[in-house]
């Protein structure tokens, strides 16, 4: 081939999804929203205690950040997320792989899994409170549970959708089992599993905040719940914004990781 090979090499290729993506136009809707919100407050249609203006929320947020309160609560929540996500992801991976790789386990376990998968994790909260109280175990359990289902599902589907053709190639070259696993099966399923992990971490975050709202003595959800009880709507809204931003960042980071790990897919 006479073509310059350099142009085919991946070094110069772009990495979609690696940037955090704040294009100028992406900032317009949130800014407009804040503007409308601020204007609505200025009209005085709603009592000041109910519709707190964004400027007040921003001040509260700055105050909470300065006092270290926000940092402490966010830190506590993120630690729970990390531990619960780790536990849920590992069990989800193991369960998904075990069910996908054996016909027997699939027949035995998969229907029950699909049934439980239909139940919102939030619905388990009352029962879990009874079992574990409202301590750390409870919160880590709900995060693990919220992580387990999407990861198990993605792992199962990922393994099931590896084309037969690729196993045939391995058979033709008499590829040994460890090589088949690490060089073919794992890379072939990684994209699906990463998508599952990304869905799981954002879902787990939502469930954790909800769980903390319900029963907790610390964490971002508890911060909001305390604010609600004391009728400090500015604190509640500061929590809403914080949890939203954290969820958004978790998703972007997960997407970036996903794009990086599947660079070979870029066409």
């Amino acid at each position: 081939m006479a073509t310059a090979p350099a142009s085919f090499l991946p070094s110069g290729s772009r990495r979609p999804g690696f940037k955090l993506g704040p294009l100028p136009q992406a900032l317009v809707p949130p800014l407009a929203l804040f503007a409308v919100w601020q204007l609505a407050c200025l009209t005085g249609l709603f009592p000041e205690q109910v519709l707190v203006p964004p400027s007040t929320v921003a001040r509260t947020l700055a105050r909470l950040a300065a006092s270290g309160e926000l940092e402490r609560d966010v830190g506590v929540s993120l630690r729970r997320l990390l531990v619960g996500f780790g536990a849920g992801a590992l069990t989800g991976l193991a369960f998904g792989a075990a069910t996908a790789l054996s016909r027997w386990t699939e027949a035995a376990l998969w229907p029950l899994f699909l049934l439980l998968w239909q139940v919102p994790v939030i619905a388990f909260l009352p029962v879990l409170v009874l079992f574990f109280g409202i301590d750390e175990t409870f919160k880590i359990t709900i995060v693990a549970l919220a992580t387990f289902f999407p990861v198990a599902l993605a792992t199962f589907d990922g393994i099931k959708s590896v084309p037969r053709a690729w196993f045939e190639v391995a058979q033709v070259y008499r590829t040994r089992l460890p090589d088949l696993l690490w060089r073919i099966l794992v890379p072939a399923t990684v994209p699906a599993i990463l998508t599952g992990l990304r869905v799981a971490i954002t879902r787990a975050w939502v469930v954790l905040v909800a769980g903390e709202l319900l029963a907790a003595d610390s964490g971002i959800g508890q911060l909001m719940e305390t604010g609600r009880q004391l009728f400090q709507i500015d604190v509640v809204l500061a929590g809403v914004i914080t949890s939203g931003v954290i969820g958004f960042l978790l998703d972007r980071c997960a997407r970036a990781l996903e794009a990086r790990a599947t660079r070979w897919k870029d066409a």
Binding site: R176, D179, W264
Partner: peptide, 17 residues
């Protein structure tokens, strides 16, 4: 060919065993 392997790695796969 396996999409996550370079041309080189794809060819070398045949020599693994």
């Amino acid at each position: 060919l396996f999409p996550w392997m370079t041309l080189e790695q794809n060819v070398e796969l045949a020599l693994l065993n």
